[in-house]
């Protein structure tokens, strides 16, 4: 199966849930989906034995407030699936105010490590992940400080900013 047919197949599988699709590079397919359709989409991929779950990336999109219409800050969660050279990325956006996403552990048990990393680094709650104890950050890391969010810029300031952020939200 060469790369383009693999991508076509993936596009067909994910068709029911796709809000938008894009092909940023010849070997990639980005599919934007709703939060609620994550599990069915992942299930469909796994059921069709399309590639393997390779990585989970969090992307922080801080709120933009100057000029344009104010966009709420959100974390984009990217689920990368690889099959040979083809990479399919499921993109799910979760807003800061309701940073929750369903865990895909029931479908792919090994995803828990990535999910725990996401929880700690971006503060996106993965409902249903088996263990939510600290995996990477130290035990005394303050609650509610998410180091990979753009608003975190070092320790002293972060606490102040986080407080501001809380009052704003």
């Amino acid at each position: 199966m060469d790369t383009s047919t693999a991508l076509e197949k993936a596009a067909a599988i994910l068709q029911p849930w796709a809000l938008a699709t894009a092909t940023p590079e010849p070997n990639r397919l980005d599919v934007v989906i709703e939060r609620g359709s994550l599990i069915p989409a992942v299930k469909a991929l796994v059921k069709a034995r399309w590639g393997f779950f390779s990585a989970l990336t969090g992307l922080d999109q801080p709120p933009s407030g100057d000029g344009e219409p104010v966009r709420e800050g959100c974390v984009e969660v990217l689920y990368h699936f690889c099959s040979a050279a083809a990479v399919v990325t499921l993109r799910v956006s979760v807003p800061y105010s309701d940073a929750k996403i369903d865990s895909i552990c029931e479908v792919i048990p090994s995803a828990t490590l990535y999910e725990r990393e996401l929880i700690e680094m971006f503060g996106v709650e993965c409902t249903g992940t088996p263990n939510t104890e600290r995996l990477l950050l130290s035990d005394d890391w303050p609650e509610g400080v998410y180091p990979l969010r753009k608003s975190f810029t070092g320790f002293q300031q972060a606490e102040g900013q986080e407080a501001n952020h809380g009052s704003a939200a």
Binding site: R134, L135, S138, P147, L148
Partner: peptide, 12 residues
């Protein structure tokens, strides 16, 4: 498993 003892903040 518990990791993180050699975290260095490289991604940040």
């Amino acid at each position: 498993v518990r990791l993180g003892y050699v975290h260095r903040g490289i991604e940040k």
